[in-house]
């Protein structure tokens, strides 16, 4: 008996051991590949920080391995220079514009999202489909008419051009609709028995419960506005209205080889979004999964 069991068991343990070895090998391979790719993703950002701390003379010299990761002589000259380039103005513009986008989209997306989630009204389905289908239209396709409309409204070279066309977006409406559909309807039904109108329900029941959805929406709005480039480029030519990406892009055109200063602007542009990202990592990623389109 004992022998027979042993005979039967041996091949199985052999296979299990092979599988176990294979598992370990795959596990090690996974770690190695993932770590290498993570380094590949981080290196450019690390290089931008080290370059921003170099003197112009060192940045002009041929690279060395050590120089990639650590400056010979750490200097904050570049950061001093960016203030001469008026970066505090660009930073203010970016932050101000982001705040308007966040508030505007929070308003339009919660109201429209709630209507699409809960109410029946004529034209609802076709309208929602139309709104959704605009998600796949590139910004470049409508840039000419947007420019012409803003020009007619005398908004070119104003904060209006940087904000007004962006106060509503399809993804935000979609996100809030999905969110409201996940809230149970009991509270609204109870309110209805008390004779509450839709407007009261929205203000007293829906909005107080909308925080998670609003956070996700705000993060997405912040990211989209902070990184926007095409529209500011077309709508703005006054330096006093430059946002950070626009300021950086134009700075490069007139200061072709001032790498430390350019990298300093790049770092200052990246830090706020990096902090946001580390705090709200989960929302960023989930927002991406449900939209799939980089705003």
């Amino acid at each position: 008996m004992a022998v027979a069991t042993g005979e039967l068991a041996r091949p199985r343990t052999g296979a299990a051991a092979r599988k176990g070895r294979m598992d370990t090998a795959l596990q090690i391979l996974a770690y190695v590949v993932l770590t290498l790719v993570a380094l590949l993703m981080f290196f450019p950002f690390i290089f931008s920080v080290t370059t921003s701390l170099k003197t112009q003379a060192e940045a002009n010299r041929l690279l060395s391995l050590r120089g990639l990761f650590w400056p010979e002589q750490i200097t904050f000259d570049a950061y001093r220079k960016v203030f001469e380039a008026d970066i505090e103005r660009w930073f203010f513009n970016s932050a101000f514009v982001a705040a308007i986008w966040i508030i505007g989209r929070a308003f339009t997306a919660t109201t429209a999202g709630y209507a699409f989630a809960r109410m029946q009204f004529p034209g609802k389905n076709i309208l929602f489909l139309m709104v959704l289908s605009t998600m796949m239209i590139p910004g470049m396709v409508t840039i000419v008419p947007k420019f012409l409309i803003l020009n007619e409204l005398k908004l070119i070279n104003t904060y209006g051009a940087l904000t007004l066309p962006f106060l509503a977006d399809a993804f935000g409406i979609f996100l809030m609709k999905q969110f409201f559909e996940s809230i149970p309807t009991e509270l609204e039904e109870a309110a209805r028995v008390d004779g509450a109108s839709r407007y009261r329900m929205f203000g007293e029941i829906i909005l107080p419960n909308a925080m998670p959805g609003l956070i996700a929406l705000s993060i997405f709005s912040f990211q989209a506005s902070w990184n926007a480039f095409l529209e500011p480029l077309i709508f703005i030519s006054k330096p006093a209205l430059y946002t950070l990406p626009l300021g950086l892009a134009y700075f490069r055109q007139s200061n072709y080889t001032e790498w430390p200063t350019m990298m300093a602007i790049a770092v200052i542009t990246t830090v706020p979004i990096a902090i946001f990202y580390l705090i709200f990592q989960r929302w960023f990623v989930e927002g991406q999964v449900s939209s799939g389109i980089k705003g």
Partner: peptide
């Protein structure tokens, strides 16, 4: 990289 500014 996906959430960083394209200009940066």
């Amino acid at each position: 990289p996906a959430i960083s500014s394209s200009v940066v």
